[in-house]
């Protein structure tokens, strides 16, 4: 993996007053945050918090209404091609070109980024092996299970050895063994200078895996910092519930007691 050659201290991702509304509904409400280079950054929030909208704007899939995004100091919306070359993205809830085989799909992603054939082939073989997709590599993606689709999409995000990885819900529907393998790959990537940004709503996973975390809810940034700073002695899950609120009391269901 290549070591960042940007000036010391430039954040891997820098977001300023980022906002987006859909009609009356404010999805992201002027968020600002920095993701330090070399960090393993978790983005957590309840369903509908604006995680996917924020990440879409950071990765060039959705034009923001307001605010700016820099990736390694490159303005994502002013120089999209340069910014996109430096990041690998796993988007949530999008289809894949599923009439291709897994091997063809990863090759396609590599060639679209202008890589040469031999490198693409070598890396595709490596990725399929590590992600335990060697046997499935020659089958059509349309016949893959949800977890396998997630893994092949991850491979398309890794093929060009990006400096920043943005992964939206990477562990959804992935089996525990593959999830552990993916975590190892990501940890190794971070230890060699890469930056990973994951969104998730599995707090336990984020607490164990990430060095930094941001909590968003209702389109607002509620807390950001290292995991230890944010959880402030409690578990991340407890802190999250405190911050986000919305816990009901569970006195209402006395009839559910089976005795």
């Amino acid at each position: 993996m290549s070591i960042s050659n940007t000036p010391e201290g430039t954040p891997a991702l820098s977001i300023r007053s980022l906002g987006k509304r859909f009609g009356e509904n404010v999805a992201v409400n002027g968020i600002s945050l920095d993701v330090p280079a070399g960090s393993f950054f978790g983005l957590v929030g309840p369903n509908g918090a604006g995680k996917t909208t924020a990440l879409s704007m950071a990765t060039g899939l959705l034009r923001p209404d307001a605010g700016q995004v820099w990736l390694n100091g490159i303005d994502v919306w002013a120089e999209p091609l340069r910014a996109k070359a430096a990041m690998g993205v796993l988007a949530d809830g999008v289809r894949l070109f599923d009439r291709l085989s897994g091997r063809q799909l990863v090759t396609y992603a590599g060639l679209l980024r202008g890589m040469d054939r031999d490198t693409v082939k070598e890396r595709t073989d490596d990725l399929l092996r590590v992600l335990d997709l060697e046997d499935a590599g020659n089958k059509l993606v349309v016949d893959y299970s949800a977890g396998m689709s997630k893994k092949i999409a991850l491979a398309t995000a890794l093929i060009h050895s990006p400096r920043v990885l943005v992964l939206d819900e990477p562990f959804e529907a992935v089996d525990p063994v593959s999830a552990a393998n993916i975590r190892d790959i990501l940890a190794d990537y971070v230890s060699h200078g890469g930056t990973v940004i994951v969104s998730s709503h599995v707090m336990d996973l984020v607490q164990r895996m990430c060095s930094h975390v941001a909590v968003i809810a209702g389109g607002n940034l509620l807390a950001v910092g290292t995991v230890d700073e944010v959880r402030a002695g409690a578990s991340l899950e407890e802190r999250f519930v405190d911050l986000v609120g919305g816990r009901g009391n569970n006195e209402g269901l006395s009839w559910l007691h089976t005795s």
Partner: peptide, 27 residues
């Protein structure tokens, strides 16, 4: 389906972004 496929049309077109789009579209 257990039918395996090779690289198919990706072998026919040059290894450029343009060729890759063509190979994918032809597939």
């Amino acid at each position: 389906s257990s039918k395996a496929v090779g690289m198919g049309a990706f072998g026919l077109f040059p290894s450029t972004p343009r060729g890759a789009v063509a190979a994918r579209a032809l597939t």
